[in-house]
Computed example of a mutant assay.
Amino acid sequence: VNNESFWGNKKYALTLGIKKAVNDHLVFIDADCVPNSNEWLSSMAMHLSEQKSIVLGYGGYQKIKNSLINALIRFETGITAIQYFSYAMRGNPYMGVGRNLAYTATQFYSSSGFMSHMKIMGGDDDLFVNEAATKTNTAVSLDEKSFTVSQPKTSWSTWWKQKKRHINTASHYKSKHKLLLGLFYFSQIGFLVSAILALLFGMNWILVLSVVLLRYLFFWIVVGKGLFRFRESDIIILLPFLEILLIGTQLALYVSNMVHRPKQWN
């Protein structure tokens, strides 16, 4: 690998660890994470088999009371997990998180490790899964005993920097995944814009309000069920507010990345 930046990066450390590993089954967790139970390792590893070489797990964040940034972080993490778990269960896996991920060394070698995205900052988890995962080789672990918990960012500035890197990494997903995820985001922002325009152009406010309430009723049911499963039930009551806040920050992050892209390896 003729890239000096690679040698001091997490991808290099992971590559060394995988090459030194004696066993084929590998389970990964970040340094700032703790397992949700003493059965975490067995709960993740049990899904690996001759057919399944990648296992996606849930990596949540520690709860901090009376913190808006913490509620937003956990909401964004939960809704992202709902997406990548449901996509994988429907045979279209597109990402995983390094906070809780398992795959085989055989799969790592057959995918040439991190070579295809070596120069991209980050992506040791989601870009690897995006490239290597298929509808037949990927399993998901939804057992609470297999969850992990991480230390969240506690300031808007540090979270902002983290999300700028994540968005930059996501721009390297396969085209079909970028299209589907983009459509989901535009459906969210499109609904809000349409409701506002309907009111501005004099449409019956009762009709507009009824459509908005119906939409958020379904949103509460679907997303709330997922968050409850991920043990994030305390933020369910805030879902409409958190969704609007997340849409606004994602739009601002997208514009910010277009103006000032995070540094990548040269």
Results as ranks from 00 to 15, higher is better:
residue 85 F to N: 03
residue 89 M to C: 04
residue 92 N to L: 10
residue 93 P to M: 00
residue 96 G to W: 03
residue 96 G to P: 01
residue 97 V to M: 04
residue 98 G to M: 07
residue 98 G to F: 08
residue 99 R to P: 00
residue 102 A to M: 10
residue 107 Q to G: 01
residue 108 F to Y: 09
residue 109 Y to G: 01
residue 111 S to V: 03
residue 112 S to W: 07
residue 112 S to R: 06
residue 112 S to I: 02
residue 115 M to Y: 14
residue 116 S to Q: 11
residue 116 S to G: 07
residue 116 S to A: 15
residue 117 H to Y: 14
residue 117 H to P: 12
residue 118 M to G: 06
residue 118 M to I: 15
residue 120 I to W: 04
residue 121 M to T: 11
residue 124 D to E: 15
residue 124 D to S: 10
residue 125 D to I: 14
residue 126 D to C: 12
residue 127 L to M: 06
residue 127 L to P: 11
residue 128 F to A: 06
residue 129 V to W: 05
residue 129 V to I: 12
residue 130 N to H: 06
residue 130 N to C: 06
residue 132 A to P: 01
residue 132 A to F: 02
residue 132 A to K: 04
residue 134 T to Y: 01
residue 137 N to L: 01
residue 141 S to K: 02
residue 142 L to K: 07
residue 146 S to V: 04
residue 146 S to E: 05
residue 149 V to G: 01
residue 149 V to T: 11
residue 150 S to R: 08
residue 151 Q to Y: 09
residue 151 Q to R: 12
residue 153 K to V: 02
residue 155 S to W: 03
residue 157 S to K: 13
residue 158 T to H: 11
residue 161 K to S: 07
residue 161 K to I: 04
residue 164 K to Y: 09
residue 169 T to L: 09
residue 169 T to I: 15
residue 169 T to E: 13
residue 170 A to F: 13
residue 176 K to V: 05
residue 176 K to L: 02
residue 176 K to R: 05
residue 177 H to F: 13
residue 182 G to K: 02
residue 183 L to I: 15
residue 184 F to N: 12
residue 184 F to Y: 09
residue 186 F to P: 00
residue 186 F to M: 13
residue 187 S to C: 14
residue 188 Q to Y: 12
residue 190 G to Q: 02
residue 190 G to H: 00
residue 191 F to R: 05
residue 191 F to N: 07
residue 194 S to W: 15
residue 197 L to Q: 10
residue 197 L to N: 09
residue 198 A to P: 03
residue 199 L to V: 13
residue 199 L to A: 12
residue 202 G to S: 03
residue 203 M to D: 10
residue 204 N to W: 08
residue 204 N to P: 07
residue 204 N to H: 10
residue 206 I to F: 12
residue 207 L to I: 15
residue 207 L to A: 15
residue 208 V to Q: 09
residue 209 L to P: 01
residue 212 V to D: 03
residue 216 Y to W: 13
